[in-house]
Computed example of a mutant assay.
Amino acid sequence: MSIYAEVIGDPIAQSKSPAIHGYWIGELGLDAEYRATLVSGDDLATYIASRRADTAWRGCNVTMPHKQAVIPLLDALDPLAARIGAVNTIVPEQGRLIGYNTDAGGFLEPLRPMLAHDHLFRMARVLGTGGAARAIIAALAAEHVMIVLAGRNPNKAKALLDELDPGGEHHVAPLDHFAEPTDFAFDDRVGCFDLVVNASPLGMAGQPPLVFDLSHVPPGSVIYDIVTHPLDTPLLQAARKAGFQTIDGLAMLIGQAAEAFAKFFGAAPPRGDGDAELRRRLTA
């Protein structure tokens, strides 16, 4: 009997997870399968109950809108998932269903070489206060990054920071603050780490554009957009043209999938080519 894992959500047809995990399964020659399964909110409890009894099931990734709704249906949470308050990976372990969050590690993966250095100061401007922002805020706070969280509702942004890192010296700003040019004179940034993250769906196909003026970006900053459709967003295009280093949404998507894959199948995914072939397939 072949083992399998899957991704659940509503909608689910747009998910790139089957292509990612399927590629790794094929490269490793595993007798396994990775599926996409449409699960509505009304059917979530029934789905979890049915998978508990399925001995071939090795777990699932969880996408919107279930990352928080699934928590009461699980037996335990990994400490990081508990702190973030969202689950994107469920794994059966010794008869219990354990919830994990691999989004935080996936987000940090392309930043690790930079964060391995000592800095005088670390600051991130994070745009968005939705579900994706939860893991990103927790990940950055753990790396001692001061966060300026921008959202349409600054009160929601403050509540999110207070929940996820109550002892941190963070700040909030209205999202439209970054839409207008600024003449702020940034100080000497040598020895500092500056990051701008679009953690919102703005700029995604079918969503309103992200209006962000690059005059708000300190010299030497890294611009990170987690949107994957389109992959090369207007923000990334403008940032590259202005000479900034950029990171696209596939970096986080592949990074979080790699952590989940190891939990599902007990093997590290093959990434020796720096994900070049996987990226080629995902963008073909």
Rank of each mutant, 00 (worst) to 15 (best):
H21F: 05
H21G: 07
G22W: 00
G22L: 01
Y23F: 15
Y23P: 11
Y23K: 07
W24Y: 05
I25N: 14
G26H: 06
L28D: 09
L28P: 12
L28V: 10
G29C: 12
G29F: 10
G29Y: 08
D31G: 15
A32W: 01
A32H: 02
Y34P: 13
R35H: 14
R35Q: 14
A36S: 09
T37I: 15
L38N: 02
L38F: 13
V39T: 08
S40A: 09
G41W: 00
G41C: 07
G41R: 13
D42N: 04
D43K: 15
L44I: 03
L44R: 02
L44H: 01
A45E: 07
T46C: 05
T46H: 11
Y47S: 11
I48E: 00
I48N: 01
I48M: 06
A49M: 11
A49F: 09
R51T: 15
A53P: 08
D54A: 12
D54P: 14
T55H: 04
T55Q: 04
T55A: 03
T55C: 00
W57R: 11
W57S: 10
R58L: 14
R58K: 15
R58H: 15
G59D: 09
G59L: 10
C60M: 08
C60D: 08
T63F: 04
T63E: 06
T63K: 01
M64Y: 10
M64S: 13
P65V: 11
H66K: 12
H66R: 10
H66V: 03
K67H: 10
K67F: 11
K67I: 11
Q68S: 11
Q68H: 04
A69F: 03
I71N: 06
I71F: 04
P72T: 02
P72N: 07
P72L: 06
P72H: 08
L74N: 05
L74Q: 04
L74I: 07
D75R: 09
D75F: 08
D75G: 05
D75H: 10
A76T: 07
A76H: 08
L77I: 01
D78E: 15
D78C: 01
D78L: 02
D78F: 05
D78G: 02
D78Y: 07
P79M: 02
P79A: 03
P79T: 01
P79V: 02
A81R: 01
R83K: 03
R83A: 13
R83F: 01
I84K: 00
I84L: 06
G85C: 03
G85N: 08
G85R: 01
A86M: 06
A86Q: 08
V87R: 04
T89P: 09
T89L: 04
V91T: 11
V91I: 12
P92Q: 07
P92I: 13
P92W: 09
E93F: 12
Q94L: 11
Q94F: 09
Q94S: 13
Q94K: 12
R96E: 08
L97W: 12
I98V: 15
I98R: 13
I98G: 00
T102Q: 07
T102A: 01
T102W: 00
T102M: 05
D103C: 03
A104D: 13
A104G: 15
G106E: 09
